[in-house]
Nucleic acid binder design. Structure first.
Length: 502
RNA sequence: GGUCCGUUCGUCUAGGGGUUAGGACACGUCCCUUUCACGGAUGAAACACGGGUUCGAUUCCCGUACGGACUACCA
């Protein structure tokens, strides 16, 4: 029998959700949607020292922005509530105690300082310290202490942690959906801390207990967790849950665009692109940019992210969320890390921007304009820009008379033909009754023909006269949008000023 | 250092024992166009290296190199 599909995204509220985290959430979500399963959101806030105010809301808002909906978890509730680990604190201790009673875990009284010191001396001798089957017999714990001594220490309020008694010689192997069989020997695994001295569980314990209790079927997470997966297997084994253990899929990492290492916040500053879905304000007041605020459309972000480490095996590049539900599969995720190339994200943005309707874009980005005019403007610029806010910028530029003129163009193109052509055009402006692109073009053609001047001789100079710059969108449509009066005024001004620049 | 994972154009990747090694981004050229952009066409551009296995390896195996993750009472 196969378990119902239940996946979870389980971030820590330690700051802004990284874009790699969004991808992890996305892959989880895609699997859930594809297989008719449930998507859970669990907040792993077991480290009180790293808790950051606002991070949880940020996570929820970011997921909702990209269109990942949560079926169960923080913010929406569900049968396994609470979904915040700090609120589940008490139960983890019960599970830890179970392991203690079964002899699978033990109390340890060594302080962090003592352990750090040991690590340091060992390291200076070129070897590494491990709290394991051999060293635990020499350290300060309930295995070396008598039962009475242990009890006395605990009753005296001495701080302790609970560690897993990792078996000395055991081959651990598990099948990762992405990496296939992974083998690790238990001798390379530490007796990891399960319960910290503040009474909170570590990630390892909380994660395994919760995934079991919440009946998670697939654990899809970043590759940084691969080394601790064997430990988790050991934990499932210790609890006797191995037969219902979730399947694992460790995702390849998102790497720096250049150089080595995984993508980090620093790369954003260096490369001038966001690594967070939404703008984030640090506790110190500084801000980090977000994809949303930079003008990335959520469809583009999703498509871009989905393709970083996964592909459908066809030549289709554009995928809506619904299409991803269909096409996605864990098996087609590849193993190696993917460099984060913002150019691809920009390209996707451009593609999705073009797909938006003029009407929608006009309403959203040119709200101050009369709808008909706004749509014309959108139409004029939509295919020329990468980000929607550029439309707003271009629109204001178009509707503002030029203050300066591109002198390079003026000096090479301002000649008698251009001057006469523009003058003639200006003089017949009055006669154009219906001031629309086609009629404007027709009239201009006619006038130039009368004078025996070729279009090419005049067009660029006309553009400079009207907009100040030598390149831009369709001029006839631009004039239509400016309106007859504005065109006339701009030409008047240009005719007076241009000769001085030529 | 140790453990684990990985390696196809600059980047994201398809492919897979015999292929002109395919696509996309970026880049070059051309076409379209009043210009720029869009679009279309086209070009340059890759199987890390060394050994096996094999009639034949980029593909399978083993090493090496390189890269990455992890190595906390952080997740």
């Amino acid at each position: 029998m196969t378990k119902p599909v239940r996946v979870r995204f389980a971030p820590s509220p330690t700051g802004a959700l990284h874009i790699g985290g969004v991808r992890t959430a996305l892959y989880n979500y895609l699997l859930a949607k594809q297989l008719g399963g449930k998507m859970l959101l669990r907040i792993e806030d077991t480290d009180q020292t790293r808790f950051v105010e606002g991070a949880e809301n940020y996570i929820i808002e970011a997921l909702s922005w990209v269109g990942i909906t949560i079926d169960e978890g923080v913010g929406v509730g569900g049968p396994h509530a609470p979904y915040r680990q700090s609120e589940r604190k008490a139960m983890y201790m019960d599970y830890a105690m179970q392991l203690i009673h079964e002899g699978k875990a033990y109390y340890a009284f060594d302080t962090s300082e003592e352990l750090d010191a040991m690590r340091q001396t060992l390291e200076s001798q070129g070897s590494a310290f491990q709290y394991n089957a051999v060293t635990r017999t020499k350290l300060n714990n309930s295995l070396t202490l008598s039962e009475a001594e242990t009890k006395a220490k605990i009753e005296a309020g001495e701080p302790y942690v609970i560690r897993l008694k990792v078996p000395a010689k055991e081959e651990i192997r598990f099948k990762d959906i992405i990496r296939d069989w992974v083998h690790v020997h238990s001798s390379t695994i530490d007796d990891k801390v399960l319960m910290k001295s503040d009474g909170m569980p570590t990630y390892h314990l909380a994660n395994v207990v919760d995934d079991h209790l919440m009946e998670i079927s697939h654990v899809i997470r970043g590759e940084e967790w691969l080394p601790s997966a064997p430990l988790h297997i050991l934990l499932y084994r210790a609890f006797g849950w191995e037969s219902t253990m979730p399947q694992f899929a460790h995702l390849p990492l998102l790497l720096k665009p250049e150089g080595n290492g995984k993508l980090s916040k620093r790369d954003a500053d260096l490369g001038g692109f966001p690594v967070f879905p939404l703008e984030w304000t640090n506790p110190d007041g500084s801000k980090a940019m977000g994809f949303r605020e930079e003008g990335y459309l959520k469809e583009a972000v999703i498509n871009f992210l989905a393709f970083l480490g996964w592909n459908p095996g066809t030549e289709q590049e554009m995928f809506s969320m619904d299409e991803l539900f269909e096409a996605f599969s864990l098996e087609r995720i590849n193993k190696s890390g993917a460099k984060f190339d913002i150019n691809k994200a920009k390209w996707y943005n451009q593609q999705y921007l073009k797909l938006q309707s003029d009407e929608e874009l006009a309403k959203q980005y040119l709200p101050d304009f009369e709808s008909d005019k706004a749509q014309k403007i959108v139409h004029l610029f939509k295919e020329r820009v990468t980000f929607p806010q550029e439309i707003t910028k271009e629109a204001t530029a178009l509707l503002t008379a030029p203050i300066t003129y591109d002198e390079a163009v003026v000096s090479s193109k301002w000649n008698n033909d251009a001057k006469n052509g523009i003058l003639a055009f200006k003089n017949v402006l009055e006669k154009i009754e219906n001031f629309v692109a086609d009629d404007i073009k027709h009239t201009l053609h006619e006038e130039l023909e009368k004078l025996g001047i070729k279009m090419g001789k005049v067009m660029q100079m006309l553009r400079v006269a009207l907009t100040g710059v030598g390149a831009g969108p369709d001029l006839m449509l631009s004039m239509e949008i400016m309106g007859k009066k504005e065109v006339e005024e701009r030409l008047e001004k240009a005719i007076n000023q241009l000769p001085a620049l030529a």
